[in-house]
Amino acid sequence: MTEPEDPQVRNLDARSLRGLAHPLRMQLLDALRFGGPATASQLAERLGESSGATSYHLRQLAAHGFVVDAPERGKGRERWWQAAHQGLRFDDSLLTHTDPVVRGAADMYLHEVATAQIRNLSTWLGSRAEWPEEWNRAWDMSSATLRLTPELTEELIAKLHAVVDTYRELAVEDDSAAHVRIHTHLFPIETD
Results as ranks from 00 to 15, higher is better:
Met1Asn: 03
Thr2Asn: 15
Glu3Cys: 03
Glu3Gln: 09
Glu3Val: 09
Asp6Cys: 07
Val9Ser: 03
Arg10Cys: 02
Asn11Ala: 04
Ser16Tyr: 14
Leu17Phe: 03
Ala21Cys: 01
Ala21Leu: 01
Ala21Asn: 01
Pro23Arg: 08
Pro23Ala: 08
Leu24Gly: 08
Met26Cys: 08
Asp30Ser: 09
Asp30His: 13
Asp30Phe: 12
Arg33Gln: 14
Gly35Ala: 01
Gly35Asn: 04
Gly35Gln: 04
Gly35Ser: 03
Ala38Tyr: 05
Ala40Cys: 05
Leu43Ile: 00
Ala44Gly: 04
Arg46Met: 11
Gly48Glu: 05
Gly48Asn: 05
Gly48Leu: 09
Glu49Pro: 10
Ser50Thr: 14
Ser51Ala: 14
Ala53Met: 07
Thr54Lys: 08
His57Asn: 13
His57Val: 01
Leu58Asp: 01
Arg59Thr: 13
Ala62Ser: 10
His64Ser: 15
Val67Pro: 13
Val68Met: 05
Val68Asn: 06
Pro71Asp: 03
Arg73His: 14
Lys75Asn: 13
Glu78Ser: 14
Glu78Tyr: 11
Arg79Leu: 07
Arg79Trp: 07
Trp81Cys: 02
Ala83Tyr: 00
Ala83Arg: 00
His85Asn: 15
Gln86Asp: 09
Gly87Pro: 04
Leu88Glu: 01
Phe90Cys: 00
Asp91Asn: 11
Asp92Lys: 05
His97Pro: 05
Thr98Gln: 14
Asp99His: 09
Asp99Pro: 13
Val101Met: 12
Val102Ile: 14
Val102Asn: 13
Val102Pro: 00
Val102Thr: 14
Arg103Ile: 06
Gly104Leu: 09
Ala105Cys: 01
Tyr109Ser: 04
Leu110Arg: 01
His111Tyr: 06
His111Arg: 13
Glu112Tyr: 05
Glu112Arg: 09
Ala114Glu: 12
Ala114Thr: 08
Ala116Ile: 05
Gln117Gly: 09
Gln117Lys: 14
Gln117Ala: 13
Arg119Gln: 11
Trp124Asp: 04
Leu125Val: 04
Ser127Asn: 08
Ala129Phe: 01
Glu133His: 10
Glu134Lys: 13
Glu134Arg: 15
Trp135Gln: 12
Trp135Leu: 15
Trp135Ile: 08
Asp140Glu: 14
Met141Asp: 10
Ser143His: 15
Ser143Tyr: 15
Leu146Val: 10
Leu148Phe: 00
Glu151Asn: 06
Glu154Ala: 11
Glu154Met: 05
Glu155Gln: 13
Glu155His: 11
Ile157Ala: 10
Ala158Asn: 02
Ala158Val: 05
Lys159Cys: 10
Leu160Lys: 08
His161Gly: 08
His161Cys: 06
Val163Gly: 02
Thr166Val: 06
Thr166Pro: 01
Tyr167Asn: 11
Arg168Pro: 05
Arg168Cys: 08
Glu169Ile: 15
Leu170Val: 08
Ala171Ser: 10
Ala171Tyr: 06
Val172Tyr: 15
Asp175Leu: 07
Ala178Arg: 15
His179Asn: 12
Val180Gln: 12
Arg181Gln: 11
Arg181Trp: 11
Ile182Arg: 03
Ile182Pro: 03
Leu186His: 02
Asp192Asn: 15
